[in-house]
Nucleic acid binder design. Sequence first.
DNA 1: GAACGATATATCGGATTGATATATCAATTC
DNA 2: GAATTGATATATCAATCCGATATATCGTTC
Lengths: 180, 180
Amino acid sequence: MNVKTMCLGVLSIGEATGYEIKKQLEGPFHHFYQASFGAIYPALSALLADGLVSVREEPQDGKPDKKIYALSETGRAALLAELSRPPGPDRVRSEFLAQMVFVELLADDLVADFVATRLEHYETQLAGLRGIDPDRLPPGRRFALGYGLAVYEAGNAYLRANRHLLDDAARTAPARDAAD
Amino acid sequence: MNVKTMCLGVLSIGEATGYEIKKQLEGPFHHFYQASFGAIYPALSALLADGLVSVREEPQDGKPDKKIYALSETGRAALLAELSRPPGPDRVRSEFLAQMVFVELLADDLVADFVATRLEHYETQLAGLRGIDPDRLPPGRRFALGYGLAVYEAGNAYLRANRHLLDDAARTAPARDAAD
DNA sequence: GAACGATATATCGGATTGATATATCAATTC
DNA sequence: GAATTGATATATCAATCCGATATATCGTTC
């Protein structure tokens, strides 16, 4: 699903600015879909040019004018067509995991630092998702919320239970050896 | 972690061709890092130009010649430097999840099909990871293997337990209504 | 007063994807 | 038997996207 389709999807929930679409993708949707402003704004421009969305400008005091986008009927049909195609494979890139694969090359204080940061990250993400009331969500979004909770909880629990694999494998720094 | 660094990392395990690096990223590393040939080959070319890897060509009967890349000492140092930087945020894009968020728009037979495919996908991925003997791996790779198992198992279990949210929400197709 | 964060829009150079191409061979399908 | 598919290998390209940056205003913090 490209960013144009995701924008159509978010607009199917209700009209929104480019900034608000980004906020949605940084918040409740963050665990399964991310996109940058560099992709969102050109996507909205293309959707507008193709007649799949409409836009109205609202001046604001003390802030840039808002451009509020809304889904057109053509856009709704295009969204349905895209959603009806079989989903492609997940795309994943976890820098933390990729770096931990080479943990034997890393100094143990670095590893401890990275692991601690990662655990905090899990807690932050879980707190964010737990702050959302599932009863107020339509079924699809409730499903996605529960999925995020399940996967973050599993990752968090795994890291807590197995961080010793990382701690024990990391390089002991020379200065620390001397202190020990 | 960009594709150049990942190539250095895979080469730190042992010399490899571009094709073999891709195979590593399609197999045991797939659940946390993916990259295309379109990125791997230019990355290897750049690494070669920068002196971070060396290459030797081996002719093969019935197949293209092999270009076998090996890490240089300069490359090893560059890898260590990159790995020592704090990991950036995970990048995730799950088309399945993104589409399920808008499940109310989809026909129920499509949803059932997508869910069935997704469950098969989990079984396939889990079978692949379970076929790897963790005792033969160094600690970092053992950790990553276990992480993949934990997260796929959680996602699989969640989908099995909660697919009813999706089934119940999907649109009932008109033709099916008439048949019921 | 400078830096930072929030609300907003927008752009750009570099990174990456997915498709495609080339080559050869073996296995499978029609 | 020919066509298709899949595997082993290398390589490239147009489209998509990222991360950084810019602009503007305001409020908060150091």
